[in-house]
């Protein structure tokens, strides 16, 4: 079963993403910021990680960089949630190793479509 980690400091976003994905049959776990996510990701392997960019403690870009440096996350799809439509953040994320991004706001269908894109 596909196991997804959703990282966002906003509880309502986490709820929404998590609810949508669980409804579609994915297994979902939540982390409240980059540091929390990294700790969780080290304990357990997730198939996909979706992370917000702006977060306290460790932001999404740093998280992606950290995850990519782990052997078990070398090729794992890592998606950023971003509201910045400018290319700067996306590029920063790509350089850090992000697979792709999703621009907020998105609705559940868009979320599921995006997840499908990175499912193996």
């Amino acid at each position: 079963m596909t196991n997804i980690l959703i990282v966002d400091d906003s509880a309502s976003m986490r709820q929404m993403v998590s609810f949508t994905l669980k409804g579609a049959g994915y297994e979902v776990e939540e982390a409240v910021d980059g540091a929390d996510a990294l700790a969780k990701a080290k304990k357990k392997s997730y198939n996909i990680v979706i992370t917000d960019v702006n977060m306290p403690n460790m932001d999404g870009i740093a998280l992606i960089k950290e995850l990519r440096s782990l052997a078990s996350y070398k090729f794992t799809p890592l998606l950023m949630l971003t509201t910045e439509s400018g290319g700067e953040k996306k590029q920063e994320g790509k350089t850090a190793g992000a697979t792709g991004w999703m621009v907020k706001p998105f609705n559940p269908d868009q979320l599921l479509a995006t997840i499908k894109r990175v499912m193996s």
């Binding site: 309502s12 976003m13 929404m16 702006n54 306290p56 949630l81 509201t83 907020k104």
Partner: peptide
């Protein structure tokens, strides 16, 4: 950063949850 994050989160949330006016407002703020 902390101030920014709040505006950013509210913007993201309000846009996602369909509160358009708030999303537009927080966008300018952000």
């Amino acid at each position: 950063n902390a101030i920014f994050r709040v505006a950013h989160s509210i913007k993201g949330g309000s846009a996602t949850f369909g509160l358009k006016e708030m999303a537009a407002f927080t966008h300018s703020m952000e």
